[in-house]
Design a protein around this nucleic acid. Structure first.
Lengths: 197, 197
DNA sequence: TCCATTTCTTAACATTTGTGAATTTATAGG
DNA sequence: CCTATAAATTCACAAATGTTAAGAAATGGA
């Protein structure tokens, strides 16, 4: 028997949700039915400033980057790879217009959980409150770790940590964006790379 | 009729929890009964490295600072003032030994919500799952805002933002800790302060 | 394959922050 | 109120990153 992409997608979502909560088959059905799916071309944008982010994205394959445009400069906030969630929490939770731009750095397939769908899940399957909590907690902890490295560690050290801890970023993200993520100029990153060899 | 400190404390906790969830009087009782209270002297520590953080602290009055000790250097992560919550999420959630030290910068009174008490609340009053989620979400958003200011802004600019956005820090925290929070040396902070006048 | 465009690298000089040492100022205890 | 100690300031020089400009390398379309 053949495996369709649909089977693959279901499995991905099943494995992911299992990291957070245990669902019966029926409950998973209910969840999966509420998801939407979308394919995003390289360089295409999923969210632009002043939009309200009413969706959370689970990346089935590919890579996303978000940045803020400040005085003409793209300030890269984070990269997201396959099997991770992304949303602009602040915009999503409070329906505030976002400052962020999200774009695909590669061809990317996402599963979409809308705010409406999540509200429905919170009501119908209270376990999802836990899912929401764990998502926020994970997001917080990842960010805290990153934040601490920012204030007290040099750019060179942060780059070395990136090589160690997130090789995907080094392998798949153009250097100019890595520089922007590190908070330095592309020229400075070149210099750092030169020093490391 | 006189108001006791206990009345004051109850009101503080009631006003705080109301920011997250609506509780009946009975439910609030259940919550309040589970809280513990503690008074911490200036410079006293609430948590030290390798302990597991099994408590969340609501600061009724005073001020806490947490830092990580890295190669003999105190790297200040954050300051917390009255009417805010603190816990080491990672340690609290996963019962991992903490790296952090929390100390009181002033005489501080805290309400303590233990992991055990929170677990009980999650079971007995499912609304508290929402409380947990909102706490994590708030923590995340506060941190994200801070993080973005970090990567792409000079120390001087960050100090100016601190003056604007968190005057309590400027007024109540010794400069050496502010410098450590900004990720610079006390001498550099002095220099920056000189330039600003 | 070739060309136009983008990305990356290099270099010289400017600016910001770090380092170490000395001095001044503030603070806590007796 | 005095004194010992800690905290903050100042300075000269070192190291890291920014800025500007130019050229080399990589990439994507025709």
């Amino acid at each position: 028997m053949e495996h369709s992409y649909s089977d693959y997608s279901r499995n991905l979502m099943k494995e992911d949700i299992a990291k957070y909560i245990q669902l019966t088959e029926t409950e998973f059905e209910c969840y999966y039915e509420l998801l939407q799916f979308k394919s995003i071309k390289k360089n295409e944008k999923l969210l632009i400033p002043n939009q309200v982010c009413r969706q959370a994205y689970f990346i089935q394959s590919g890579c996303l980057r978000y940045y803020n445009l400040v005085e003409g400069e793209e300030q890269t906030g984070q990269f997201f790879f396959e099997e991770s969630w992304y949303s602009d929490y602040e915009s999503f939770l409070f329906e505030k217009p976002t400052n962020q731009t999200i774009e695909a750095l590669e061809k990317t397939n996402v599963a979409i959980l809308t705010k409406h769908a999540l509200g429905k899940l919170y009501c119908e399957i209270p376990k999802f409150e836990r899912f929401g909590r764990l998502m926020a907690e994970n997001a917080f902890m990842g960010l805290r770790k990153y934040t601490e490295s920012l204030t007290h560690v040099s750019a060179e050290e942060r780059y070395k940590q990136l090589i160690q801890n997130r090789p995907k970023v080094i392998q798949r993200v153009p250097q100019q964006y890595i520089a922007s993520y590190l908070g330095i100029r592309p020229q400075s990153l070149s210099r750092i790379r030169k020093n490391l060899t």
